[in-house]
Simulated assay, not measured.
Amino acid sequence: MIPMLNDEFHFVRAGLRLKNRAVLAPLTHNMSEENGDPGRAELDWLARCAEGGFGLLIGAATQVQAGGRCWPGQPALMTDAQQSAFAKLTQSAEENGALALIQLHHGGVRAQPELNGTAPVGPGAIPPGGRYPLGVSALTGPQILQLIDAFVLAAERAHGAGLHGIELHAAHNFLLCNFLNPLLNRREDGWGGSLAGRARMLLAIVRGIRERLPRSFLIGVRLSPESYAHIEGIQLANQLALVELLVEEDVDYLHFSMGDSFKAASEDPAGGSLLAAVRAGVAGRVPLMVAGKIRDAESAKQALAGGADLVAIGSAAIGNPDWPKRVNLDLPLDQPPFETARLTMSGFTPRAQDYLRSFPGLVAQAS
């Protein structure tokens, strides 16, 4: 039976339920403080989305260790003050019958030197030049262990803030994705080589969280299914083989960032659906969340019919923080490019609006 958007969803092993299958995707909007403290505007916007009817909220990519920052207004979860601030997200979610997670992140090769005061790091060294004016420094074994601990500690802080779980960002050419990518990860020390070696860091983080926190604490993993834009080396076959390893580690869901949830798989010469390929690879063994061009009731229905258990709403939520309520009542949705006045009313700061304007067609250009 095909699930409907308003159907409940049960994370069986964690014993947690969602009131519907609409998920607020983790969205970067640069509304936190320069030191990583979650900003009031950021938390207020998430509260609007909770009030707007989302069953699950996933907070923006959140820094776990100094040196991994990618955006000037990126939140962090590394201090007691930051943990206390995120408790406000828990409160907003629970007041509206929703669950709330935070996405844990390290920028890897995409970390910005001007924000971190140092060259980015990755599985291997890259000489200075081009996209990497300071080059990329190869992480040592001890540094990898420190990073694993940083992710696990941030998850403990999320639990301390009352959040219902975390999502590990292993997509979009950030650190965990860098290690999974055989073109970037050519290590020969046990943190590379085979798929198991490339996935070792990610799996160690999952195990560390499971060892330290209750089984009711959700762990999700976000993955890119294939290469995109200028990024190369992410192959669907490798990502689906990784699914096998993550299923064994008892993750609660996999979140595939599809770019377009309805596109053909780039590696399928017959032009088969990417979603169908992912669905077949996951094979119902773990809940599947997808994001990418899910904009309205019809596209959400199409994604659920195609095999997704949960649909993550990204750009459409920027202009419609009440997206689930509007869809449920069959009310019209605001369409991009979103006007400045609409974004201001939703709580987006001028800096956030400047950032959002960098995405073509998303925000109306200032006159």
Rank of each mutant, 00 (worst) to 15 (best):
G208F: 00
G208Q: 09
G208H: 09
G208Y: 00
G208S: 09
I209T: 11
I209Y: 00
I209F: 01
I209E: 02
I209H: 07
R210F: 03
R210S: 03
R210D: 04
R210V: 11
R210C: 05
E211M: 03
E211D: 14
E211K: 14
R212K: 15
R212E: 01
R212P: 02
R212I: 11
L213W: 08
L213H: 13
L213N: 08
L213E: 06
P214S: 13
P214H: 12
P214L: 10
P214N: 11
P214A: 12
R215V: 13
R215P: 03
R215Y: 04
R215K: 10
R215I: 04
R215S: 10
S216N: 06
S216Y: 07
S216A: 10
S216G: 08
F217P: 00
F217N: 06
L218I: 15
I219Y: 00
G220F: 05
G220R: 09
V221M: 10
V221E: 03
V221R: 11
R222T: 11
R222C: 06
R222H: 06
R222N: 07
R222Y: 07
R222K: 15
R222Q: 01
L223E: 04
L223A: 06
S224I: 09
S224G: 13
S224K: 12
S224A: 15
S224T: 14
S224M: 06
P225L: 08
P225I: 12
P225M: 11
E226P: 04
E226W: 08
E226S: 08
E226M: 02
S227V: 05
Y228W: 15
Y228D: 07
Y228E: 14
Y228I: 12
Y228L: 08
Y228R: 14
A229C: 02
A229Y: 10
A229I: 02
A229Q: 13
A229E: 13
H230K: 10
H230I: 12
H230C: 02
H230Q: 13
H230E: 12
H230P: 03
H230V: 14
I231A: 07
I231C: 00
I231K: 09
E232W: 03
E232H: 11
E232T: 12
E232A: 13
E232R: 14
E232C: 06
E232K: 12
G233W: 08
G233S: 04
G233P: 07
G233R: 10
G233A: 07
G233L: 08
I234K: 02
I234L: 07
I234V: 15
I234R: 05
Q235G: 09
Q235D: 07
Q235P: 05
Q235T: 10
Q235R: 15
Q235N: 09
Q235I: 06
L236M: 00
L236G: 02
L236R: 02
A237N: 05
A237M: 04
N238G: 01
N238S: 15
N238D: 14
N238Y: 01
N238L: 05
Q239V: 13
Q239L: 01
Q239Y: 05
